[in-house]
Design a binder for these strands. Sequence first.
DNA 1: GACGCGTGGAT
DNA 2: TATCCAAGCGT
Length: 357
Amino acid sequence: MRDGIDREQVSGALLRWYDRAARVLPWRVGPAERAAGVVPDPYRVWLSEVMLQQTTVATVKAYFHRFTTRWPTVEALAAAQDAEVMAEWAGLGYYARARNLIACARAVAAQGGFPDTLDGLRALPGIGAYTAASVAAIAFDRSETVVDGNVERVVARLFAVRDPMPKSKPMLARLAARLTPLERPGDFAQAMMDLGATVCTPRTPRCDDCPLAGFCEAQAQGIAAELPVKTAKTPKPTRRGIAYVVIREDGAPLLETRPPKGLLGGMPGWPGSDWGDDPTPAPPLAADWALLPGVVKHTFTHFHLELSVATARVPQAVNPETGDFRPGFDPGALPTVMRKVWDHAASGDLFAGRDGA
DNA sequence: GACGCGTGGAT
DNA sequence: TATCCAAGCGT
């Protein structure tokens, strides 16, 4: 590992690059605006950082726009109904983030605003080491070290750290702290992440375009693309299940709200079997079920899922064993796997009527 | 510290 | 097609 990297030289070179090449993002106060005295809104910084957790910039943009249009302030978000927020979050994934977002907004509103220290932020729901540091640095100009996957990769290469992740994470964080400047910590953090996202990329880093190439030990050794080393991941198993899509005469679909914790917690979904090697059928009511051909495939973080879909139309009077009929339900409020089930059901004869078959 | 937790784009 | 990966957090 190289040890002679100078904080001022590295942060200076990176900030000069950022002043010239910073991406324009909806939640970002760019270097020129910042220099002109524009102050970031902690609410927008926090909201964007939570949305960006393990989620790409391209995906977040539309959600950020919808959220800030509908709820322009943390007080407005705090006053929203849970189900409204969950529905607006639908499709973005990691739904615990949305539950924590609501809890955090209400705590902040009750406190009269966001805390402006690392520890104060860190104590809020859904705010961990990364988000606390990024909000402290970007919104409150505090010299905190922001460490995300980009920063870990950049630092691993700068210092040619060959120890595998995740074991090396604490070391990478210490090395990142060495580089964090006292001035412009927020721009520095965003510059590190921009660099990782656009230049110091995972597979094929563009070292020829890198403002830090002259400081980079991995570049000097010709091993930038090999770093950081990661320990191998275990392969994903495949689970199977059956989802039941029932439409009542009035068009209301039968849905249930999933338990508040765990997979898709708090989100609406179709009644179904367990998900496993050999699922047991579990229709939510007695009906003339039609098992559709094909399966819906979806991959979660730690397993593949193949769902068979059974559909039925039922009269107005029936009472389901699980879930409830929801007139006027918007399929856009479904998490993606459940929306795929809906799309698959709609491709069948669910709406054509099967009486004439 | 390891695991559970979504989704869509890149390779 | 399969795998990797992304501005992580909570338990």
